[in-house]
Amino acid sequence: MDRDKNLDTYQEFVKGIWRDNPVFVQVLGMCPMLAVTNSAINALVMGGATLFVLMGSSFLVAAFKKWIPKQVRISLYIIIIATFVTVADYTLLALLPGVHKELGAFIPLIVANCMILGRQEAFASRHGVRFAMMDAAGMSLGFVLALFSLGSIREILGNGSLFNIPLFGETFEPWVIMILPPGGFITLGLILLFFNWVAARKKAFLEQVVQAERESL
């Protein structure tokens, strides 16, 4: 692919983690994001499953893109994704039955995570295998990071613990609301607010720099 010539492997990997973070910047994949992040361990398992599915399907889509007819591509992507999700579902059931039970219907629902389908359509179907894998790895690590930060904030405040290890001792009164659904919405809202604030600060700073340069001339 000549399109890949001006891509940088490292850049493709890093962009998903911070600059184009699927959750905080693009606001994709919200359903699993909010539903399973009531504890850090659930968030990590969910993130791991998503990583596996996204890497696997990106690899297949990028490798077979020449044979996928344009008209039925979306259905084919979904079938590929659903296959990997089924594998992840049964693997978790065998290895971590406890967590699998807690996540329940949300493991199969990875299929409906618009982030995964979005990466196939926007990236994997247009680039070579190597870049598609880099992109998938970066995006899913960004997703894991988002899940983990939300999950640990909610677990620390809502349960007073992290990975089931108590942090504050007996006197801590847990904010039960944080592990209930409203806590998920509000925490994510506040995190997005923080990201908006950082972006606004950065913009103001850059404008200041430009201003100062102009004055010095």
Partner: peptide
Amino acid sequence: PALMQGTALNLIIAGILSMAFM
């Protein structure tokens, strides 16, 4: 406030709605 507009505000509204539904 300009910072709040968009998804951040919508999520917090959704959180309050969700609290009401509880």
